[in-house]
Design a protein around this nucleic acid. Structure first.
Length: 547
RNA sequence: GGGCCGCUAGCUCAAUGGUAGAGCAGCUGACUCUUAAUCAGCUGGUUGAAGGUUCGAGUCCUUCGCGGCUCACCA
């Protein structure tokens, strides 16, 4: 049965949140498009989507909005070069041009509109998106600008009381766009007279941009100015009627941004702020993920690599306040597949080993891209174990479909073929770019020292195999495999010992991919020589140390 | 200086205040076309430390330690 109203389980965090609210809900999240968006930014997206789904499952009416703060000033140099830094730093993002080669209308439209928002649909996330530059330009923010300026002393008091930040007596929570140079990050506004504010575009207001020195008076309405971050946030809540909005821990700290915005919402806009869901970041090796650390950490790249349900699962399986350790270069990705498959099986009613997290079927269902998919049906699909796949893709000529059909016990259906194909791509990309060495199967150029562990029986076996290969000249993998077994039989060597001998001789490890196909992929003369070399009684030096 | 999160097996993590568990890794065994698969089993812990509350604490309270993030500049 497809998921339906009544499926919710309060032990799943999103259901617990949904149970706290009454009446129609507006879930909101937003993003400042100032730099490259890393995969951790998807946590907020998936989290809010999960809450929306949980509300839906409860029968609660809910919308999901996603805003782009493209009125914010450009403050990151990552994607600017040379002259562009001086020219565009401090300019509102909706006016900064897209990078060369992009036909997007602005920097913001390129990095967030094209690269980031395009990751949403594959993840099964479909919010109503809005652009703050438009909300300002069409005047919808004007009432909140007026309130903020009329109650400027109250706003300053909030900064002082909540965050112990003392603003100057004439400070206003607004940034105007300089009429001369077009920057918004470098202007300081004062003296609200009910119609206009005075401003100065200062060279030294912020470290990251240089203002032009112009000054004047300007009306702050109709897109000529933007509320400062905290007022802007609170104004959005009123404008859009937001009732639920989580935020990252950087904003959620006591006396931090969220507290200030909450206070502004209550005291300036007379509205209770939305329910907060503070959430933790993604970490690599205990450190906050950043695009400068490690490959493929951007949201765009990671959504191309990972199947979407796995990425959803990554964020949904743990509570929001838990930091997620996710190092693509470690065991995180294989581990994620393993755990996903286990929970999929459990959801399908199949027996699984070990204990399950609370509400596994909810986690699984929420991980599926299709909201109305039937979890039991999806969970029952055959999924090739990822670690096994990482091995098989390293053996030339492996017929994956045949291998996994055999493992499943019947032919894969079309959807299972898709899962296999997708995982195969992931396995290859992961091995190429991330995987620890121990996942890599490499035929050693010289006889591995580990071959010293071979016993007399194994050496005899390798010698006999070399003779047999010389006589029969096997070429195909299955012919090699047959020869491996026949030779073992004829010598009375246990097949396990035979395979171990081969792996040690070629890979320097006691196990590996299907030996016949492995040998078939190598040069025949090399194989013969290596077999005889490993078979020699003094085959390899004894390793200097045992440990 | 303030705040938040975390500290449980080698690693990643579970456990409405009620017998500390799992996955992966590791080890042992089984397996003739299966050989990093699959199957069976095993090892593995003073739950960061010390107090306190409780019949009972991984869980609640206090203090401390360690790690990380974060605010105090901007968004």
């Amino acid at each position: 049965m497809p998921a339906k109203v009544g499926d919710e389980d309060p032990t799943f965090w999103a259901d617990a949140i949904a149970a706290q609210v009454e009446g129609p809900q507006v879930v909101n999240d937003s993003k400042t498009p100032s730099g490259t968006v890393h995969v951790g930014s998807l946590r907020g997206v998936v989290l809010h989507d999960a809450i929306r789904r949980a509300l839906h499952d409860r029968g609660t009416e809910a919308r999901f909005l996603y805003g782009v703060d493209d009125m914010d000033p450009m403050d990151a140099q990552a994607h600017l070069s040379g002259d562009a830094v001086a020219e565009w730093m401090g300019v509102p993002l909706f006016r900064v041009p897209a990078p060369e080669g992009s036909d997007a209308a602005s920097y913001a439209r390129h990095f967030v509109g094209r690269l980031f928002l395009s990751t949403f649909a594959p993840l099964g996330v479909a919010p109503e998106t809005y652009w703050m530059s438009e909300c300002y330009a069409d005047g919808r923010m004007d009432p909140y600008i007026r309130l903020t300026l009329d109650r400027a002393d109250r706003v300053r008091a909030i900064y002082l009381e909540v965050s112990r930040v003392a603003k100057a007596n004439d400070w206003l929570a607004i940034s105007v766009i300089c009429q001369t140079c077009g920057r918004i990050g470098t202007t300081l506004a004062t003296d609200w007279d009910g119609q206009t504010v005075a401003y100065v575009c200062r060279a030294d207001l912020v470290e990251w941009a240089v203002g032009c020195g112009a000054s004047g008076r300007v009306s702050p309405f109709g897109g000529r100015a933007k509320l400062k971050w905290n007022a802007d946030w609170a104004a959005k809540w009123s404008l859009l009627g937001v009732t639920i909005e989580g935020c990252g821990k950087d904003l959620a700290t006591a006396g931090g941004s969220r507290d200030r915005s909450d206070a502004i919402a209550r005291e300036v806009f007379q509205r209770e702020p939305p329910l907060d869901i503070p959430y933790e970041f993604l970490t690599i090796g205990g450190r906050k993920m950043s695009t400068s650390r490690g490959l493929g950490a951007t949201a765009h790249q990671m959504t191309e690599l990972m199947p979407p349900e796995l990425l959803r699962f990554l964020f949904l399986r743990h509570k929001p306040r838990r930091a997620l350790e996710f190092d693509p270069a470690g065991d995180a990705i294989p581990g994620l597949f393993d755990e996903f498959d286990r929970i999929a099986s459990a959801t399908a009613g199949q027996p699984v080993r070990g204990e399950l997290p609370p509400a596994p079927e909810r986690i699984f269902r929420m991980s599926l891209v299709q909201e109305d998919a039937d979890p039991a049906t999806e969970g029952a699909r055959f999924r090739p174990p990822f670690r096994h796949l990482t091995l098989l893709v390293q053996v030339p000529g492996t017929d994956m479909e045949a291998r996994f059909s055999a493992e499943k016990g019947e032919p894969l259906d079309a959807l299972e073929d898709d899962i296999l194909a997708r995982r195969t791509v992931v396995a290859r990309a992961w091995l190429d770019g991330f995987a620890p060495d121990r996942y890599l199967v490499a035929v050693r150029a010289a006889l591995p020292v580990e071959a010293a562990d071979l016993d007399a029986g194994q050496r005899a076996y390798l010698s006999a195999l070399a003779d047999a290969a010389q006589a029969e000249r096997p070429a195909a993998g299955d012919v090699w495999q047959d020869l491996i077994f026949r030779t073992a039989q004829s010598l009375g060597t246990a097949s396990g010992d035979a395979f171990t001998a081969l792996y040690l001789a070629f890979l320097g490890r006691p196990n590996g991919p299907r030996a016949g196909w492995l040998l078939a992929s190598l040069d025949a003369a090399f194989v013969g020589a290596r077999l005889r070399e490993a078979a020699a009684p003094t085959a390899a030096p004894v390793p200097a140390t045992a440990g």
